[in-house]
């Protein structure tokens, strides 16, 4: 059974590219365009991994991350934070909030796909 990946970003073109990449890598892809949508998507069956943008309207990536980690039943979901803000402090903040990886935009598509595969222990 294919692993499921949730892509969360408010930038349509980025969502499009991530969706394409994850599909190609053989994952089942779900899309959310805001923090609120992302949390809704987690209800029911949580995905194996999330690609989570930090800068979003309403509540941002950090907050989403925090909420997820507050729920024990969502513990298995791996979180990769994506951000256009590359500062070290922000990276640490993300990791401290329970993110598993932190990727700075723009990223190498191959590296990202490799990292996701590694984290989901496939291929």
């Amino acid at each position: 059974m294919a692993k499921r990946v949730l892509v969360v970003d408010d930038e349509p073109n980025i969502v499009l590219s991530l969706e394409f990449l994850m599909r190609r890598a053989g994952f089942e892809v779900q899309v959310a365009r805001s923090g609120g949508e992302a949390l809704k998507a987690l209800e029911g069956e949580p995905p194996d991994l999330m690609l989570l943008d930090v800068m979003m309207p309403e509540f941002d990536g950090y907050e989403v991350c925090e909420r997820i980690r507050a729920r024990p039943d969502w513990n298995k979901t791996k979180i990769v934070m994506l951000t256009a803000r590359g500062r070290e402090a922000e990276r640490e903040r993300g990791l401290a909030l329970g993110a598993d990886a932190y990727v700075t935009k723009p990223f190498s598509t191959r590296d990202l796909v490799d990292q996701v595969k590694r984290m989901l222990e496939v291929g």
């Binding site: 930038e11 980025i14 590219s17 991530l18 990449l21 256009a84 700075t104 935009k105 723009p106 190498s108």
Partner: peptide, 11 residues
């Protein structure tokens, strides 16, 4: 700046 760049590089 990074946001459009991300799209450009990804695609």
């Amino acid at each position: 700046l990074r946001t459009p760049l991300t799209s450009i590089r990804s695609f």
